[in-house]
Nucleic acid binder design. Structure first.
Length: 350
DNA sequence: AATTTGTGCAACCGCGCGCAC
DNA sequence: CGTGCGCGCGGTTGCACAAAT
């Protein structure tokens, strides 16, 4: 037996709301409130609408102080950062933007921000490819002096990164020297396994993460997942450095994305659930941390028990504190994760 | 000018959660 | 403890309008 419908579908009106209906609903709620029962509300008012429909109309349109359209750069910034951090938790994101509804933000993301992000990322990617293909046009010396992404570092790009990433991954000598993981294959395996939230020690067990890889809509061989993650590690380390020197500014909503392969950004934009699975340990402090007390040989939580749905209560407060901390210019929590991750991989923060 | 295609957005749908009984 | 119900959320749909052909 299916679930009982919330209202008599045959006798409720659907589709756009008329001004009269809006007026009825608005004046009633302004005078009497919702009464804590949306289902009963339409009968009280004499509206032939489903209670859920009334709730939606009120929350997304009739409620006072609602803003529509005209998203500012700062709002874009907040939405992008929160989306990357927590995924499609529109209600949580909306809670950080006064006057905005989750529906509005969701629509805005799907129709504009997503494309803006991808467009920007593709541009950066093409520019970088051009630079790599035409090195004589660049001031190579300056580049070498000022950045860890130097020619020396590029020569250290592991073969598995170079094979799948269109842009060389900036892996420094120091990273590998301190990692204790000079064996590229073992490092690669560990990174791929970490993405699945499981650490395995042999190839047979490693097969278990194959479903995740298959589930990726874009071609994402394990090698590519690893290379993109290496980019993230390096990016976050840079962000950390800015934080520590007290100059951190959340100035660029696309910060970090320009270093990533297009497929990665597409995965972020088109398939947040996959991102949730793969990146939740990175962006949500304390959620999915490995239990390293036993040498990292087991994970403390199963994939199921750490699904997004189970974590909502955990997500919120760290998220808010991260956001508040970020607003105040103090170190965002992502840096804590970066630090833990660098520690885990035996790398030094840049 | 007519038609097709793309875009933005309001609204709907179904599911999971929490609470009351 | 199990069940039913309402709420809230996120994904999806469908329509109106704009832009392109």
């Amino acid at each position: 037996m299916g679930r009982a419908p919330c209202c008599d579908k045959a006798n409720v009106k659907k589709g756009p709301w008329s001004p009269e209906e809006d007026a009825k609903l608005k004046s009633y709620i302004e005078q009497h409130g919702t009464g804590g029962n949306w289902i009963a509300l339409p009968q009280k008012i004499g509206l032939k609408r489903c209670g859920k429909s009334c709730r939606l109309r009120w929350l997304n349109y009739l409620r006072p102080n609602i803003k529509h359209g005209g998203f500012s750069e700062e709002e874009d910034n907040i939405i992008c950062r929160l989306y990357v951090s927590i995924g499609s938790r529109w209600s949580i994101i909306a809670a950080q933007l006064p006057g905005r509804t989750d529906n509005d933000i969701k629509n805005y993301w799907n129709t504009r921000l997503k494309k803006k992000l991808l467009g920007k990322q593709r541009k950066e990617q093409q520019a970088q490819i051009r630079r790599v293909n035409n090195p004589q046009k660049q001031d190579v010396k300056k580049e070498t002096e000022n950045s860890v992404v130097a020619s020396e570092a590029i020569t250290q790009v592991p073969y598995w990164c170079a094979a799948y990433s269109s842009v060389p991954v900036p892996v420094t000598n120091a990273s590998f020297q301190h990692s204790g993981l000079n064996n590229q294959t073992s490092l690669r395996n560990m990174m791929v396994n970490k993405l699945e939230g499981v650490i395995f020690s042999n190839d047979n067990q490693q097969q278990q993460h194959q479903p995740y890889i298959n589930a990726c809509e874009v071609p994402s061989p394990p090698d590519q997942i690893f290379s993109t993650t290496m980019n993230m590690v390096n990016h976050v380390a840079v962000v950390s450095d800015e934080s520590n020197s007290g100059t951190y500014q959340p100035s660029n909503i696309f910060q970090g994305f320009e270093e990533l392969p297009i497929e990665f950004c597409e995965l972020v934009c088109m398939n947040p659930q996959q991102m949730d699975r793969s990146m939740k340990g990175r962006f949500n402090y304390g959620m999915e941390s490995m239990d390293m007390s036993n040498g990292g040989s087991t994970n403390t939580t199963s994939t199921e028990s750490t699904s997004w749905g189970d974590m909502s209560s955990l997500v919120y407060s760290p998220l808010v504190s991260e956001y508040e901390g970020w607003q105040q210019g103090i170190i965002p929590q992502v840096d804590v994760v970066a630090f833990e991750e660098c520690k885990y991989f035996g790398m030094q923060m840049q």
